[in-house]
Each structure stands twice: as structure tokens, then as C-alpha cells.
Design a protein around this nucleic acid. Structure first.
Lengths: 235, 235
DNA sequence: CGAACGCTTGACACTCTTCAAGACATGTGG
DNA sequence: CCACATGTCTTGAAGAGTGTCAAGCGTTCG
């Protein structure tokens, strides 16, 4: 039941009223993807539009030379697919098991036409993605490796700890060194070195390879290179 | 008269029907900005939404340290401002004299609510901006200075010469070395050096400081670093 | 004519990548 | 349980590509 959906207040569908939800109810299909599974390929047809219910997927493009750039992470509530555009310009790949609530593209376009609230919400979400992408542009082009790693850690910390008190907190990077490198446009060696440096400086304390304690979040923020407004890729 | 507007088929308003145009007609205001004029400031209120009629403006953010990243160019047909978001996260600055057809934000939101076609077009345009921004992410992070400059030239060449024959053509970079540097995340010295190198290699032939002949566009495309799909920032 | 601006060029420093090797953890088959 | 393979991560040394700083040239404009 849509009205009891765990992302009811998060996804596009939060723009739908009760009557609209009934419409969605009738047309939706659930899909599951296994870790590593290709959910869509750059340049190819993508005949569905969906909302991520759980799990994480990457949006990326790989160059001829083999370097990869991750341009977005799809998480709970994020949209996969594009209305009125029948191909997708990026590869989409499941990182963890992913559940998607999907509609065939023409069906979803009809729903958008009929439901003003849905369309409004859609505009808001894409706009936020756009802002996040542009913010990433400023990070990729103008920050040092150190600042990139710190910005990434701060972003995750603020996201994962809803209390923005800037004191001690814990952060789970979730991703491998290589995946972080593909997001921040670095090599995995550089990522590893920067993380080690932060450890040796006592700014982060390892719990596991990917989970860290941050004794003083404020100290990290000051190393991040600018006024941290929190909008990194993911939305 | 909207129906005779020079960007009738280009901007958001191309999503409006004849009756809708009458609505727009009643509410629109024209604004002009001089070169160098600040049209909006990051973090501040932006109580209007408009379409650029002529001229060019930059969308950028400047870091504490003084480095600037241009995240988009606003040209004829592009949208300035954001529905349902009352501040803007980037600075907007007129590069040339700019004319804008503007609406107060709440007014434009009402129009979006009433006109499905307008809303559909809005989604398409923001979506295209998002794709362009993400493509720029792959360029900023993963290309060399040479590839960045070449990609930029190729992009402009394809845009300015509607004939995509890949033979000889001419291209006007319009921007100063410094502005190009701010788009591609380089220094203006590096931009200058790369352009000189391309000249010395005979890949481009200067007509003025900012206008070049390209004897063999195909040759440039092969230096650009990947399959060139043309989507750079600007839309 | 001088000032201001945009552009070119050189020398040098430095960050990050590249290439290479090894440590650590986990899982598999004998 | 061990031997081994595999994937992830750390570390080192060397080198390439850009940034930085500095100087000078050409053009435009007052």
C-alpha cells in the first residue's frame, strides 16, 4: 500500500494526494537488483522511471582510458529515470541490494500530466539534484585531495548524525577507497594516504576500515576549504 | 507580444499554448543588466524567475581562498531563478548586456500550477541542465588541461556551426582566458599555454585572440578524451 | 603619454598520479 | 586446519602535469 510506504514522505510520490496514491498503486511494479548489477547503461534505452525504496546505487560514466567518475548516489527516495527522455546518459549500478518502485516511462508521464502535486515535487527534486551536481563541480575542480576527503567526511557526518552539534560523532563511509576515489576524482592510493594522515593527526579515529569516530567535527569543517552548506551529491 | 517573442520556441514558455501566452503576457516584466552587474548573489533572496532573452551571464561560486568556479552559462532561453526555492545557491553575473523576461516567484509558481505544458517544459529544461552539470563533473575531475581545452573548443564549434560535418569551421570563444579558466578549473596561464600549443600544432588557427579557425574538427574531437556527446555546461 | 588590462612566456615548486611491493582480511578447496 | 587465492588497503619512490610567481609584450582608453 502506497499510503503505508516507508518512503511516503520522501520520494516524488510525496507530491501525490490520497486520490493520486490510488492511481500510483494501480500502476507500480517492484523491482530488485543484486549488488553489482547493472540497472541501466549510458546511451541505452531506459523505459522505466522509479523511486529507490532501499539500498544504494551509483550513477557514473567511464572514459575510454578506464577512469570512472561517479556523478551521483541513488539512495532511499531518489529518482531513477527521466520523464520525456527515453535514454539515460549515465550508467546505473547497484552497490548494495536495491529495491525500486517502478513505472513504465509513458505511464509515469501520464501520471505527471494528471497530478500537479507530483509534478511540483518532481521539479523540486531535480532542482535539488542540479544544485548538488553544481556544488560537486566546485569541489572537483577547486579543492585539494585533503579538502575533498574532509568535505566528504563532513558531509556524511552531518547526514548520518541528525544532531548538528559539531562535537563528537561517528561516520560510516560505506564505500571502498576506490569508490570514494571515483566520487572525488582521485586515485585510491591518494584516498588511502589522506585518510591515514587524518588518522595520524587524530582528527578521525578508526573503528573499522570504513567507520570512524570524529572527536571534533568542527575541526574537520574548518579543514574542508569553505563554508560547508552540506549539499554534496546524493540529495 | 509573447507570441512574437524571439525565444518563443526556446524557453520555458515554449511549453505554453496560445491561451497560456496571454496569461504570461499580463504578468511579465522586462529587466536589463549591464556587463559586470550582479544579477543575484549566493545565499540571498531571489524573488524572481526569468528567461534570458539575450546576452550571457555566468553562474558561479567563489571560495574563501579566492578561486572561482563557473558552474553554468545562462544564454538565450535559459532560466534564471528557481520555483519553490526562495534563495539561489550561486552568484549570477552579467557578462554582456543581458535582457530578462521576469516574473515574481509566487506568480510564476501559480502559472506553473495552472499550465501543464509549462511545467513539463520546466522539467525537461532542468533535467537537461542536470545532465550537463554531471557531464561537466566528469570533465573537471578526469580530464587533463589539454583535453579540457579541446573539449571546450569542440563543444563551442559544434554549437556555433550547426553543420556537424566535422571538417573546417570557425569558433568564437567569447570569453577571456581567465573566464575559460574559471569554467574548466585551470589557471589562466595554463589556458593560455594550452591554446598556444594547439596553435603551434596547427590544430587551430587564430583570427583574433578569441576567434579561431579549426581546419579539421575531427582531429580535435579525437584529442578530447572521449566520445563527444556535446553536452557541456550551457544548455 | 601613461595606465590598465589581457595575454604570453619562463623558471621553479609542489601536489597528485603512477608503478611497484607488501600487509591484512576473508573465503575456498584440499 | 592449513594452504592458497582474492580483494582491499597501506606504503614507498619516482615522475608528470599544473600551479605559482615573476616579467614582459601588445592593445585600448582616458
Amino acid at each position: 500500500m502506497c499510503s503505508a510506504c516507508r518512503i511516503r514522505r520522501l520520494g516524488v510520490c510525496s507530491g501525490a494526494d490520497e486520490k493520486g496514491l490510488d492511481q500510483l498503486e494501480l500502476r507500480k511494479t517492484y523491482r530488485r537488483y543484486a549488488p553489482g548489477e547493472r540497472m541501466a547503461s549510458a546511451g541505452l534505452d531506459l523505459p522505466q522511471i522509479g523511486t529507490v525504496l532501499s539500498g544504494t546505487a551509483t550513477l557514473s560514466r567511464t572514459q575510454d582510458r578506464g577512469t570512472r567518475q561517479i556523478v551521483g548516489l541513488l539512495q532511499k527516495g531518489d529518482i531513477l529515470g527521466r520523464p520525456w527522455r527515453h535514454t539515460t546518459p549515465f550508467d546505473v549500478e547497484a552497490l548494495t541490494p536495491v529495491e525500486v518502485c517502478a513505472f513504465r516511462t509513458p505511464v509515469f508521464e501520464d501520471l505527471l500530466d494528471q497530478m500537479p502535486g507530483l509534478r511540483t515535487r518532481m521539479i523540486e527534486m531535480i532542482q535539488d539534484d542540479l544544485d548538488a551536481a553544481r556544488t560537486m563541480m566546485t569541489i572537483l575542480g577547486r579543492k585539494t585531495a585533503r579538502e575533498k576527503i574532509v568535505s566528504f567526511l563532513v558531509h556524511l557526518a552531518l547526514r548520518q548524525n541528525s544532531t548538528p552539534e559539531r562535537g563528537a560523532c561517528e561516520v560510516d563511509m560505506m564505500l571502498s577507497r576506490e569508490q570514494i576515489a571515483d566520487i572525488l576524482s582521485l586515485t585510491f592510493e591518494t584516498v588511502s594516504r589522506q585518510i591515514m594522515d587524518l588518522e595520524r593527526a587524530g582528527l578521525i579515529v578508526p573503528r573499522t576500515r570504513r567507520i570512524f569516530c570524529i572527536p571534533e567535527l568542527q575541526a574537520l569543517i574548518q579543514l574542508s576549504g569553505d563554508d560547508h552548506d552540506g549539499a554534496l551529491i546524493d540529495c
